[in-house]
Design a protein around this nucleic acid. Structure first.
Lengths: 228, 228
DNA sequence: TTGTCATTTATTGTTAACAATATTTGATAA
DNA sequence: TTATCAAATATTGTTAACAATAAATGACAA
């Protein structure tokens, strides 16, 4: 049941992106990764190819792999697609939630609120993502679940780039009302809430500012505006 | 502007699957591919990793890569997801088609009919796929376009497995009416037609028969029930 | 024949070395 | 300083050899 080194790398990078520890544009050097996971470069290469196929990593020939930097146009497409998919998921999840699902979701809301109080952004993002993914699981369609997984990942990158305030995460009372509708089995209401929720998230974006500076390990470590 | 060997391999395999020249379960040996494309195995490996990330190829550790064989449950999920996405695409494409788009689609319908007359299954499948993908392009969302591309690919595999008659492809008059609605800009009608169209396709599947025998080059070449 | 097992063969997985290409560094000149 | 360019360094891309694993073959016994 143990994972291949390739899966290990893929999941580690996906997790890091989902929690905004890896910002858009970060270079993913092959040596660095093979050192970190103590495996050979061939495995790293395959992992990066997988991530590139999921549009989470950009592969520039002879330059290396970088965490994808979504353009404003891509951001629009991603949120549009996400609304379509989460609406469908909502429709299929409605009335299908078990008691365990509901308690999980309610606990998750508390967990996210606590993380926000503690200013623990990674934990907050992780909780928020889990919320959406759990509902996808309730809907019971593995294809939609995988699509949503990719889209939430890329949404996180977008929020990191274009969300000026820390307004990145979801409004909690919206999550609350979604669970209410889910539990009550009021399908139309649930779909409406899901759509609205994502529109609010998208409305918080600001594409006027430049897409923020690119990233490299060096730049992150050096104090801004100072040379050695 | 030339493609890397990896992209070449990926596209060749995707095309072959889309035209049902590569049936589900076919083994994709590394040596065979590296010989065919005259490149080293490392490139083949990366290509297969990409295809696996797109769920078009199954990677069995120490056994090799095989064209994915969708289960009945996966088939249901795929068509459900496809309906959700094509409905969304229809809604966004409605009224957005240029004159060139319309002529392309009408020509495409003729092309598909001609291929069907000539019993040229690959050409028929290619045309049918182009039809759906062109409408996706009109909708203008690259994410939805990519999702649909993956789903049409997997749909073709499903049709190859579970479509008893040659009823695999789409009814042509349905395509006709879709173009009419698209041109007229009658959004609700278009969405309804798209949904119906996919339901008809799915209704033609038969999951009672066994998923058909697996495949290997040997079995394909030997006459059934004969040994050397 | 038919089934089982050891041997052989083929295929996948891993590693290291080398080549090709960017990037950085430092020197030189304006 | 600032710009330009060449050398040095680091990184990606490619290849081949080897190890580990699975599949195929064939011998042997029932």
């Amino acid at each position: 049941m143990k994972d291949s080194p390739e899966d290990l790398i893929v999941n580690a990078i996906l997790d890091a992106i989902a929690e905004q520890r890896l910002p858009a544009g970060t270079k993913l050097g092959e040596q660095a990764l093979s050192d970190l996971f103590s495996c050979n470069r061939a495995n790293v290469r395959r992992a990066l190819a997988s991530l590139a196929a999921q549009q989470v990593v950009e592969l520039r020939p002879n330059r290396g792999a970088f965490v994808m930097t979504p353009s404003p146009k891509e951001a629009r497409d991603i949120f549009q697609a996400r609304r379509a998919i989460e609406r469908t998921i909502a429709r299929h999840a409605s009335g299908q939630a078990s008691a365990g699902d509901i308690t999980f979701l309610r606990d998750n809301i508390l967990e996210e609120a606590a993380a926000r109080q503690a200013s623990d952004k990674p934990a907050e993002l992780r909780a928020s993502r889990q919320f959406h993914m759990r509902i996808a699981k309730i809907a019971g369609n593995l294809v939609l679940e995988r699509f949503l997984s990719e889209l939430t990942m890329r949404s996180t990158l977008i929020l990191g780039l274009y969300s000026p305030t820390g307004s990145s995460s979801c409004a909690e009372d919206e999550h609350d009302r979604i669970v209410d509708a889910l539990e009550a089995g009021s399908t139309d209401e649930l779909v409406r809430l899901a759509d609205e929720h994502l529109r609010h998230l998208e409305a918080g974006l600001n594409f006027d500012e430049p897409p923020a500076a690119p990233m490299s390990l060096r730049e992150q470590l050096m104090a801004p505006g100072k040379e050695s």
